[in-house]
Every structure is written in structure tokens, then in C-alpha cells.
Simulated scan of single mutants.
Amino acid sequence: MVRDATFRDAQAIADIYNHYITNTTVTFEELPVTAAVMRSRIQQAHDLSLPWLVLEQGAMLVGYAYASRWKERSAYRYAVEVSVYLAHDVTRRGYGSALYATLFERLAGAGLHVAIGGITLPNDSSVALHEKFGMKKVAHFTEVGLKFDQWLDVGYWQKALVSRNQEADD
């Protein structure tokens, strides 16, 4: 079941994310985050009327996806960055797709124009998920992050959520 995140989900979200912080280069954060940090991030999304979603399997939270502001400048207000994370032991079960399907639907319904996803490279499964949802690679930055004593590349994928023709009709 995909639903809106609440503050009660903050610890489970932090637990999922902290696995990626401490064990992978998927995120460039280097120190584990607390439930309080996640509550603050959920609140920031809510303050901007952006979705933060969780997926439950039974009584267990197994993943989350959210949109955040792309850049601070006013002209960027119709562009968002999207992210999805799953509990490390439940990947390849369609949960990321379920989260992104709901996230993209909500973003388009809110009148947002572009979704952007940043991916540490290489990451074949994340690239496949983003491309499954029609995102196209638009940028590749070489050696922009240093984690675990290795320089890492980042690619950016982008998707129009609302076509220019749809915007003109509205």
C-alpha cells in the first residue's frame, strides 16, 4: 500500500536510508540521519505541497519516495527532484515502480512540469527504474563526489510531467 508519509514513519525511513549512507555510494551523505532529521525533511516537503510517500507491505514500511525543490530560484518552481529508496532486503519486487507511479501521478496532478532524478553512477537498477518511467539522461558529471575514498560520477535523468500542449489547454 502506498500512502502519504507521516511523522510516525520518520524512524523507519531513517533506518532504510541509513543503510545506503553507511554501506553504499548511492547517496553522498556520509553520516547516518536521525528520525528528527527525517521529520524535518517530511515537513519541508509538506510545506512546499510536495508529496512524500511510503510503501507498506503488511505492517512493515519497505520503501519511500519523495519530491523536493530542484533549485531555490523562483523560476524553478515547476521543477522537482525525485528520489526513491527501498529497504535493502526487498529490492526487485516492484516496490520502486509502485512508489514512482504514484509519485509521478501526484506531481503531474499538482501541475508540476519536470521531474529530475540524480543517480550516482554506475547504478544499473536505478537507471532502469528511471528509464522505465520515461526519464531520459540529460547530464553526466564526472567525479563530483568523494565517498569511501573513491571519486564518483552523477548522471541526471529528466521527464516532462505535463506537456507544453497540456499547459496551453489549461
Rank of each mutant, 00 (worst) to 15 (best):
I42E: 11
Y20T: 09
I13W: 00
T25R: 12
S40Q: 13
H19T: 04
H19Q: 08
D15A: 13
T24M: 04
V37Y: 05
Y17K: 01
D15E: 15
E29H: 01
L48Q: 13
M38A: 00
H19S: 05
T34N: 05
R8Y: 11
Y17R: 03
V26M: 04
Y20H: 08
H46E: 15
I13E: 02
V33E: 03
V26E: 02
A12M: 06
L48E: 14
A12W: 02
L31M: 10
E30P: 01
I13F: 04
T25N: 12
Y17I: 09
E29R: 00
T25F: 11
V26N: 06
A45W: 07
V33D: 00
N23R: 13
Q43C: 11
E29M: 01
M38S: 04
T27L: 03
R8I: 13
Q43T: 14
R8V: 13
A12D: 09
I16Y: 07
Y20E: 05
R8L: 14
A36S: 11
N18C: 02
E29P: 01
V33R: 09
E29D: 12
A10S: 14
F7D: 12
Q11F: 05
T24P: 08
Q44H: 12
T24E: 07
D47T: 13
I42V: 06
V26A: 09
Y17G: 06
D9V: 12
Q44T: 12
R8A: 15
R41Q: 12
T27W: 02
D15L: 08
A10C: 10
R8D: 15
E30C: 07
T22Q: 15
R39Y: 03
E30A: 06
E29A: 05
M38L: 09
E30Q: 09
T24V: 11
I21T: 05
R39D: 12
F7H: 13
T34P: 07
T25Y: 06
A12P: 01
F7W: 09
Y17P: 00
F7P: 04
D15K: 13
T22E: 14
N23E: 13
T25A: 11
I42D: 03
A45H: 02
I42N: 04
Q44K: 14
T34A: 09
A36R: 05
A45D: 04
R8H: 14
Q11Y: 07
I13D: 00
V26D: 01
R39T: 12
F7K: 05
N23G: 03
T27P: 02
Q11M: 12
